[in-house]
Nucleic acid binder design. Structure first.
Lengths: 126, 126
DNA sequence: CAATGAGTTCAATAAATGTTGAACTTGCGC
DNA sequence: GCGCAAGTTCAACATTTATTGAACTCATTG
C-alpha cells in the first residue's frame, strides 16, 4: 500500500497526471458510496451540465473539504481530473460508468436532479 | 428524537409493525449508502430472487451484525419487514423505489449480479 | 525571484458506520 | 411455566469517512 502510494506520487510528478482507476477496476461499492454524499452529487450534476470544468466553479464548502470530495470521486472512478496549468479540470467518466454499470449514472442523476428541484434554496447556495 | 423513538416503540408494541419511511420520505443518500455495502446488496439480490423471505435464510455474518444491516436497509426504505410469529419476513420495496428513483434499483441489481457472477466463491459462502 | 492564486497534503479531530458479545424480547411447543 | 429459537437492543469498541487549519506544491505574472 505504501508502495502504491509512492508509485502514484512518482507518476504524478513525472506525467502531471493523477491516478484514476481503470474502467474495469471501478468498484460498485465505491461508486455508490461516492454518490451517496449530497455535495458530491452536486459536483457531478454541475459537471454534467457544463461539461469539463475547473474545480474553481465549486464553492459550497472550504477548499480542503472540496479537495477531499474531489479525491473520493476520482478514486471511485466517477470523475477524471486533468491538470491544465494552474487549474484542475474535472469531468465525469460517463462512458466508463455506463460501460460498467449501465443505467446507474442516469438513474442517480435523475434522482439528484429531482432532489435539487425539491430544494432550490439549498441549491442556490452551492 | 427521544420522542420519536418512544413513539416508534409504542407503534411496534401495539401493532407488531416496525417503522418504515413513507415512500416520499425515502432519501437518495440513505438508499445509495445502504446499497454501497456488499452484504446488503447480497441480501437484496436474494430477496429479489426468492421473494419475501425470513431473516433466517441469511447466514453470511453473525446475527447481530445481520440485524444491524437489516435495520439499515429498512430505515433507508429499501426493504420492508413483516413480523410473522417467530419470524421476520423481509422484502424489497421494489415499487416504492421505482417510484422514487426510476431505474436505480434495476441498475444496482444488474451491477450487483455481475459482481456476484465475477466472484462466485465469495458468493457461495453466503 | 517574490508574490499570488489554485488546489493538495497532512495531521488532528469529529462524526458516522460497522462489528461484537451479553442481555433482552417475543412467539411457540411441550 | 419452562426451554428454545428468532431476531433485537445495548454498550463498548473498531474502523472508516468527513471536516478543518496549517503548511505545502505548482504554475503564472510582474
Amino acid at each position: 500500500m505504501l508502495n502504491l502510494r509512492a508509485f502514484r506520487s512518482i507518476c504524478s510528478a513525472m506525467a502531471k497526471e493523477l491516478h484514476h482507476p481503470d474502467r474495469d477496476q471501478i468498484d460498485l461499492s465505491a461508486v455508490l458510496e461516492a454518490l451517496s454524499e449530497p455535495i458530491r452529487r452536486e459536483i457531478v450534476l454541475r459537471l454534467l451540465e457544463q461539461g469539463e470544468a475547473p474545480c474553481q466553479i465549486f464553492d459550497g464548502a472550504p477548499k480542503t473539504n472540496l479537495s477531499y470530495h474531489y479525491a473520493r470521486l476520482r478514486e471511485a472512478g466517477v470523475t477524471r481530473t486533468r491538470i491544465a496549468g494552474p487549474y484542475r479540470m474535472l469531468s465525469v467518466r460517463v462512458e466508463d460508468l455506463a460501460a460498467r454499470f449501465p443505467g446507474l449514472l442516469e438513474a442517480v442523476v435523475a434522482a439528484a436532479r429531482a432532489e435539487a428541484a425539491k430544494n432550490p434554496a439549498e441549491n442556490q447556495s452551492a
